[in-house]
Write a protein that binds this DNA or RNA. Structure first.
Length: 203
DNA sequence: TGCCAGGCCCTCTTTAGGGCCTT
């Protein structure tokens, strides 16, 4: 598989459209099955973190007061991931925050997102749940740290992505797992999934 | 005025509803 950047945001809530902001970002560069680079930073946007979110993530308003400004962090992480395809667990969430925070520094995303949640639903249809923590346990992957902290979640999403690629190669006999194939699998209707994988197997 | 996420996916579906998943 090509080199990809697996990212994870912690935020003040669920929707940038409703005023929610990022509080932490992590990105890991995954190349040839190994993490070769890590970026992690809290970021100060001035937004208030609700008590529930403080409890969920362990990221407090006090911690963010001394964090670097979001504009600096987003410049750094954008430079760090470059043009590598981005991967996230439930990418519809992270892509919204990525695009919203990038727009604030007048930068635009060029690459596509791959979603490990959508892929898991297709490749591990029998998993009891497709939330990240449940999939880590289901696939017997190591817990990288505290859930709901950006670097730990990004590292676990990266190991999950590798396991999904392994499953495609071993169980579905796909010779070459590419980002393009993953993109097509995550978009494939269930009725066309077998056909999609069979086509990839022949390549 | 009043409400306030939104995309995916299943099903007792498609003229819809509700659960999952992210914080």
């Amino acid at each position: 598989m090509e080199t990809v950047a697996v990212i994870d945001f912690e935020t003040t809530g669920l929707s940038p459209g409703q005023g929610d902001r990022a509080t932490e970002i992590a990105a890991v560069i995954l190349k040839d099955g190994e993490i070769i680079g890590r970026y992690q930073s809290l970021m100060n946007t001035g937004a208030w973190v609700p008590a529930f979110i403080e409890s969920l993530t362990g990221i407090t308003n006090e911690m963010l007061r001394s964090a670097p400004p979001a504009s600096l962090v987003m410049q750094e992480v954008a430079d760090f991931v470059g043009d590598y395809p981005l991967v996230a667990h439930n990418a519809s969430f992270d892509s919204k925050f990525w695009d919203a925070e990038m727009a604030r520094i007048d930068r635009t995303r060029r690459q596509e997102f791959v979603c490990s949640l959508l892929l898991s639903r297709r490749i591990f249809p029998k998993a009891p749940s497709h939330k990240l923590s449940a999939l880590i346990e289901y696939a017997n992957l190591p817990v990288a740290g505290r859930y709901h902290r950006a670097l730990a979640d990004a590292e676990m999403a990266a190991s999950l992505l590798q396991r999904l690629a392994h499953e495609l190669r071993e169980q579905h006999k796909v010779n070459t797992v590419s980002v393009d194939l993953l993109s097509r699998i995550q978009r494939a209707p269930k009725s066309q999934l077998t056909k999609c994988i069979a086509h990839a197997r022949a390549v």
